[in-house]
Design a protein around this nucleic acid. Structure first.
Length: 105
DNA sequence: CGTCCTGGGAACG
DNA sequence: CGTTCCCAGGACG
């Protein structure tokens, strides 16, 4: 069962418009959390697997970041694919192609 | 209350 | 640009 903190995080993620992404830092800030890592932890537990577009959350340095507890691997590939579907693309270096697609709360 | 965990972030070289 | 160090916070026992 989701904790209050997680609900806040998921809710925030749910507000991310399609085609845009957010960073853990911004997200953490939005939930008034001083640490992005805590947010990542919540996302990692992600009880609402596909329901919560956790793939829309990237790192503050505009990198893909991790996904499902993995910083690289097939799952990251899935994340990239999902984002690509929404128009969010990353360059070969793994950086966000369009920094403008970062959604600011 | 104490311990371990975190998909990160910021700073420094 | 790459590497290193760090804090903050949350969940869990």
């Amino acid at each position: 069962m989701p904790t209050l903190f997680q609900q806040r995080v998921y809710e925030a993620i749910g507000r991310i418009p399609k085609g845009q992404v957010t960073t853990y830092a911004l997200l953490a800030r939005h939930v008034r959390c001083g640490s992005a890592r805590a947010v990542g932890q919540a996302l990692r537990h992600n009880p609402f697997a596909p329901k919560v577009p956790c793939h829309r959350v990237i790192a503050a340095d505009l990198r893909i970041g991790g996904f499902c507890g993995a910083r690289d691997g097939t799952q990251i590939r899935r994340k990239r694919a999902l984002l690509a579907t929404e128009g969010v693309t990353f360059d070969a270096k793994g950086r966000l192609a369009d920094p403008a697609r970062v959604f600011r709360f």
